[in-house]
Design a protein around this nucleic acid. Structure first.
Lengths: 314, 314
DNA sequence: TAATTTAAATAATCTATTCTTAACAAGAAT
DNA sequence: ATTCTTGTTAAGAATAGATTATTTAAATTA
């Protein structure tokens, strides 16, 4: 190894001697014997080809070269200390960044609460939330741009093997009706009733829309017979449309908590149909997992996870 | 020794890997084997309790902590490089300070030429010239405030043992007369003639004055019989006074080179009297000798030294 | 999919630093 | 003069770090 002319230990010794004015005291300060100090300084002087200390007098005094070196020495050691502190902060989560991926729905209704909780405990970690499609989120996790993500949709097959996928929670996709709709009287609906409704849906690109379509189809419904009044591109717009009496819709329950509590929207029960999807936590097991990510997964996510999620099993 | 969490070598390895994106290539770059690199990084990671590299993929990628550390790493290594350069410059005399002491006379007439010569070769060394009394100069050399000095007077006894005193040159104190003075006709004067002259002298504090007085007295002259027209405090003033015809004076030959060449002053010979003093180089053998000081002593001084000076014996 | 190649981790051995103890030398303080 | 302190020198011991050889894992290629 093409050698450096000094080591950090030598610089530490130099600093100590300069501060104490004595080899002996420096040795005591550093918990080594005095010859060790002498030797190191001799090596340093030999390698730099300068005299550093004037040992003549009562005190060990710095020569011109010594003073020059000491200046750099202090700067270098300060940088080292700073580096240590920064790393410690990172370890104790007083710094760093956590990047979380989510779909539109979880990103809008679930993540903000989770992140809020996380930041209560770790206010110095900056958290980024990336809302993208399931596919794109999956790739981002795969190549390390995102630490972890919660998705509701189906991943491309090749990613399924690459990523760790943990069932996280069940997201019910509730049928919501305007509160003055005539079907709100009925305790329970039947699948058949859906054909009588006008629907306001997410546009067909959306993951949630695809999931709903697939689930309805799987349950035996002929989805092309469902009347779609209009397609909107955000859940908020849909909720507003439903509340305005423009039609019914399937929306994630997490997105209507406030409306249900305020009685501004009606959630219908369907006797012979359950529209549910699995929310899944995805991470990349072959990548480095940041401390913040570990903590988020271990401490925050379980508080929102459904009871049967592996994350809950403490 | 309370340990530092990393060594400069480890930082160098870290930097190399980050640059090359590979442990192997970093190893080649640093002329070590690959396991050595692996081990050092492992130690680093253990000590800092962080993961630095993501070894999963094709390339060794930095983790968040790794990037953080690398920032400090680069700054630290840069400082180290700078320190090395500064020391090298000092060694090769591309920096540093040389502090030279001198009496009024040598400081005015000799040193400027020497320093000029020195700075031709070493323009980056800053040179300070301190003109003080012999006594004060001696003490400054003793306590290290001055690297070396040339003095013409007598040192206090205690300093004579402490310092290294090398005969350097003989400084003739020439009797100078106005060019129109009636004694300039004579080829050689005699001591007796001095009593007929009016003298313009340095004031009695001055080293040169004391030396001249002593030398004249030692040669048997009754100095109180010499007529002193006036006392001035600088050689330049004296030279002007002499040239103006106000009187004669003993002045160091080095101080009248220009005037002799221009024929504006007359230097008299005295048959039975030689007024000479030894200029001596003094240094402090028990103190650190700067590189600049060594060079000045070895290369510059001999060019101005008299033939019998030890400095000339190459 | 298997085979080859490449990079990194691991293990065992060996070397080289760098401590420590001990003995010594030089200055300062008593 | 001698005692105490401080630093240097020298020899042995402990440790850190490097090397070679081998194993493991991933990526490229056939």
């Amino acid at each position: 190894m093409p050698e450096l002319p000094f080591t950090l230990d030598q610089l530490r010794i130099l600093k100590a001697i300069a501060a104490e004015g004595s080899f002996k005291k420096a040795a005591d300060l550093l918990y080594v014997t005095q010859p060790a100090v002498s030797l190191q300084i001799q090596n340093l002087e030999k390698q730099l080809e300068i005299t550093i200390f004037d040992r003549g007098g009562r005190k060990a005094l710095l020569t011109e070269g010594g003073r020059l070196l000491l200046e750099y020495c202090e700067r270098i050691l300060n940088q080292c200390d700073e580096a240590c502190k920064a790393i410690e902060d990172l370890n104790s989560l007083k710094g760093g960044t956590l990047i979380i991926g989510a779909s539109q729905t979880t990103g809008t209704y679930l993540m903000p609460r989770m992140i809020g909780l996380f930041r209560q405990s770790y206010p110095d970690v900056s958290v980024q939330l990336k809302v993208h499609s399931t596919r794109r989120t999956g790739w981002s996790v795969a190549n390390g741009q995102i630490d972890l993500a919660i998705i509701g949709g189906q991943l491309p097959g090749d990613l399924e093997n690459l990523l760790q996928i943990i069932p996280y929670a069940t997201d019910e996709l509730a049928l919501v009706l305007p509160i003055r709709h005539h079907l709100t009287n009925k305790k329970e609906l039947l699948k058949e009733d859906l054909y009588k409704l006008n629907f306001v849906t997410l546009d067909s690109q959306s993951t949630t829309r695809k999931v709903v379509d697939k689930l309805l189809k799987d349950s035996g419904l002929e989805i092309q017979r469902l009347k779609i009044e209009m397609e909107l591109n955000s859940l908020e717009a849909i909720k507003n449309a439903v509340q305005a009496g423009l039609g019914a819709s399937f929306v994630p329950v997490v997105s209507i908590e406030r409306e249900l509590a305020g009685g501004t929207i009606h959630k219908a029960k369907i006797a012979d149909l359950e529209v549910k999807r699995e929310l899944k936590l995805i991470t990349n097991p072959s990548r480095y997992t940041s401390r913040a990510s570990q903590v988020f997964k271990k401490n925050i996510l379980p508080q929102f996870a459904s009871l049967d999620s592996p994350l809950r099993k403490i």
